[in-house]
Amino acid sequence: MDLDLRKLRYFVAVAEELHFGRAAERLHIAQPVLSRQIRSLEDELGAAVFDRDRRGTLLTPAGEQLLEDAVPLLASTEALLRRVRAAARDTPTLTVGFMPGITVTPATAAFATRRPGVNVRLLRTSWHDQVEVLLDGRADIGIVRLPVDRRGLEVRPLFQEPRVVVLPVGHRLAGHASVTVHDLATEHLLQDPDAVPEWRDVAVELREGRRPEVPAIHQVEEKLELVASGAGICVLPLSTATFYTRPDVVPLPVEGLGPNQVALAWVSSRRSPLVHDFAEAATETLGRPTTREQS
């Protein structure tokens, strides 16, 4: 049996929304059409993927397994299509993902001397999509900030740099030369706690095992706006905090906070000479110790 990728996309939309009406709106199709496609998929699989009753829509064990496998499969399909279309262009192209605060120019300049006929495109990423853009083919290689989910990836460390906490100028700790993780544990963190495991562990301990809730904020600029307004704090790599300098927030060193590791990452199954050459260029340029990294 050949799986219909369109039906898989429909399934993933319903699985993520757990509501046929919202999924139909997201897919821009009529709800009855979506329901028929899901029933057809279930017939082809020989298994029910959703439990539908008065309580709502829930995934069955078969549906949970299908969702786990369908998401990377669809991402691989998207990546295949993008790479084939890129290969058909007259000018070869390499797309490089990069996180805010990281200067990519030395690596792209070194790569240009190796591959002068290649068009290099840059794609700004965030904590939440820096791996996703590699898996679905939007980027061929990425300069990422660890930790990331390494499954299916080749990861090569480049350098590490200190992290700082960013506070509003009127904060009770803003005048200190430095702070500790414990000083910050009761503050409202404006990012994924998994990105700051030292803060997460102390905060969970103070909250008697309850994991702190955080908003879904992906852009540095938005975080800094909220910090300036007094809505919370955020932890950033030193280079990012320096790049986004503004008068209404204060960056401070944090005792007990480990450095941020910057690395190259690409899909491990890729055998592209362009990816290899950029990785070598980035390792030679960005991987060298600098004054910033030693500070």
Rank of each mutant, 00 (worst) to 15 (best):
V33K: 09
G101Q: 11
V250A: 02
L135T: 11
W127H: 09
V181I: 13
F278D: 00
E255S: 04
R36T: 07
V275P: 01
L5K: 14
L58D: 10
L94V: 00
G258C: 03
V202N: 06
E205L: 06
H176W: 06
I141Q: 03
V214E: 07
A203H: 12
G101E: 09
R156A: 08
E132H: 10
P168S: 14
A86C: 01
A47Y: 05
L257T: 11
Q191C: 06
P147F: 04
V84N: 12
E293P: 05
Q261S: 05
R150H: 15
E222L: 11
P193T: 09
V235Q: 02
L123C: 01
V164A: 06
P253W: 07
V120E: 00
F159K: 11
A282M: 04
V131L: 08
H28V: 03
K7W: 07
G21N: 07
H218F: 08
R156K: 08
F11V: 10
E154L: 10
P212Q: 07
S295P: 10
P253C: 04
G46E: 15
R115M: 03
S178W: 06
D201I: 06
L81V: 15
D183F: 04
S229A: 15
V133S: 03
L59P: 09
L66I: 12
T91E: 10
A185T: 03
R83Q: 14
L153W: 00
P289Q: 12
E68D: 14
V169C: 04
V166Q: 02
E44L: 13
A47F: 08
E16P: 04
N260P: 01
L73W: 15
V144I: 12
H171T: 10
A109W: 07
A195Q: 09
V133H: 00
P253N: 08
L27S: 06
G21S: 12
P147D: 05
I143S: 01
P116E: 14
E222N: 13
A228C: 12
D4C: 14
R36M: 13
E293M: 09
D136N: 15
L274M: 12
V12E: 10
P251E: 08
I143H: 00
H218Y: 09
V181E: 11
T105H: 02
R121A: 09
T290L: 05
W127Y: 07
L34D: 04
T91P: 01
L8Q: 15
P116V: 15
F20D: 06
E25D: 02
S269W: 09
F159T: 13
V214A: 11
S40W: 07
A279V: 04
L153N: 07
E17P: 05
T240Y: 01
L146W: 00
F243W: 14
L257N: 14
V155P: 05
T57A: 09
P197G: 01
E187W: 04
A24W: 00
D43K: 15
F98V: 04
L252S: 13
R145H: 01
Q160Y: 00
P92Q: 09
G232T: 04
G97H: 00
L158E: 08
T108C: 02
A75P: 01
P168T: 13
Q261C: 03
T240F: 02
L27V: 05
S295Q: 13
T77M: 14
D277N: 05
L167Y: 09
L274R: 02
T113A: 15
Q130S: 03
K223Y: 11
E221F: 02
H188D: 11
S239A: 14
A112N: 10
R121P: 00
